[in-house]
Simulated scan of single mutants.
Amino acid sequence: MERRNFLAATSAALAAGPLLQLVNAAAASAVPAVVRPADVEQIRTAATTLRSWDNLYGGGGGVRDTAIAQLRWAANLLNSRCPAPLRAELFTAVSRLATVVGAAAFDAFAHDDAHRLFTFATSCAEEVDNWPIRAISYNLRSRQATWRGDPDSGLTLAELGLARADRLSPAERSMLHNARARALAKMGRTQQTLAAIGDSDDSFKSLVPTDEGPWMAYYDDAQHHGDTGHALFDLALAGHPPQQAILRLQTAVDSHGDGFARSRTFSRTKLASLRMAVGDPEQALAEGRRALAEVSRLRSLRANHDLGELGRVAHRHRTIPDVHDLREQITSTVTV
């Protein structure tokens, strides 16, 4: 099957499949016969808006339902007639939106949906040779594989994303080195993890925000330290000195703005778990209480999962009354 026919078939399957039946078909907007610049701009705006909602509220609830409706409309545009000058922009915009919807599905533990959407995003980006957007899709595919307990595939996907790294920006390279580091850390490869973090740090040092594409606007000092801190967190739990992990996670917590509430919560929860694990329950309690309050405002099953991990790590200090209370509150929160 030719690639454009594959994409058309895939977009039709996305529109008709169980994933997008979550939204009433009768509510879907009619797809125009001919793609216009305003249609592409609508997809870009939707991707940017939905990503900000996802970061602020988590991927569950209304965020995901709204994202699914928008993606169905956008995916069906691939079957409309598109003027040649708009074709690359259309496929790029649909790829970006697919990664946003996939990320929301990932956060809601709809893993099969997320996998399909990330793969679709890769195909759209590759159709028009957009290497940066392709890199974003591979980054998410890598992170999902690693998160689901398959770091070997996570490493492979991250390295595929780094193919032709000369065509990627410093932020894009740093992002993918972080994905490598997180996969390597889960595999227990300490020195290779540290080397990948070093590669990420080197790329980050050369980052010039004004030279980055709008899709990388999220990748700032807070994001960089949070991502690398997560990789170091896994090493620290395995016995590596925890100081760098604590420092990076604390930097992320202190630097994330309110617009990235979920990312801040991820880093804060990991920081609390690490402090609890290394024998600093008083500091861990302070961060754990804040993390608990933040998670209760999100609809994110990944955030709930991390909070549950904190509860399990805190078990070793269960004789401390405040820790016991925190664990009970965590249990109540993650089972709601």
Rank of each mutant, 00 (worst) to 15 (best):
R87Y: 04
A88C: 09
A88K: 11
A88D: 13
A88F: 04
A88E: 07
E89Y: 03
F91T: 00
T92W: 02
T92M: 06
T92E: 14
V94L: 07
R96K: 11
L97K: 06
L97R: 02
T99E: 11
V101T: 11
A103T: 13
A103V: 11
A104T: 10
F106Q: 00
D107F: 03
D107S: 02
A108N: 10
A108H: 01
F109S: 12
H111S: 15
H111N: 15
D112W: 02
D113W: 09
A114Y: 01
A114S: 13
H115W: 12
H115A: 15
L117Y: 11
T119D: 12
T119W: 00
A121G: 09
S123N: 12
E126P: 02
E126R: 10
E127W: 06
E127A: 14
D129N: 15
N130K: 12
P132L: 09
R134I: 04
I136W: 03
I136L: 13
S137P: 11
L140Q: 14
S142V: 01
R143H: 10
R143F: 01
Q144G: 08
Q144P: 00
T146W: 04
W147N: 05
W147H: 11
W147M: 10
G149T: 07
D150K: 12
P151H: 11
S153Q: 15
S153F: 05
L155V: 05
T156Q: 06
T156W: 12
T156R: 15
L157G: 03
A158D: 09
L160H: 13
L162S: 06
A163Y: 07
A163E: 14
A163H: 14
A163Q: 12
A163R: 14
R164M: 08
A165Q: 13
A165E: 14
D166Y: 00
R167T: 09
L168P: 04
A171H: 04
A171W: 05
R173P: 04
S174T: 07
S174H: 04
L176H: 07
L176S: 07
L176W: 07
H177M: 02
N178T: 12
A181W: 07
A181C: 14
A181I: 03
R182H: 09
A185V: 04
K186M: 13
K186E: 15
K186P: 00
G188W: 01
A195D: 15
D199V: 05
S200W: 00
D202A: 14
K205R: 15
K205P: 02
S206Y: 13
P209R: 09
P209W: 03
G213I: 08
G213V: 01
P214T: 05
W215A: 08
W215K: 00
W215R: 01
W215G: 06
W215M: 10
M216Q: 12
M216L: 14
M216V: 08
A217W: 00
D220P: 04
D221T: 11
D221G: 02
D221I: 04
H224G: 00
H225E: 03
H225G: 08
H225K: 01
G226E: 03
D227M: 06
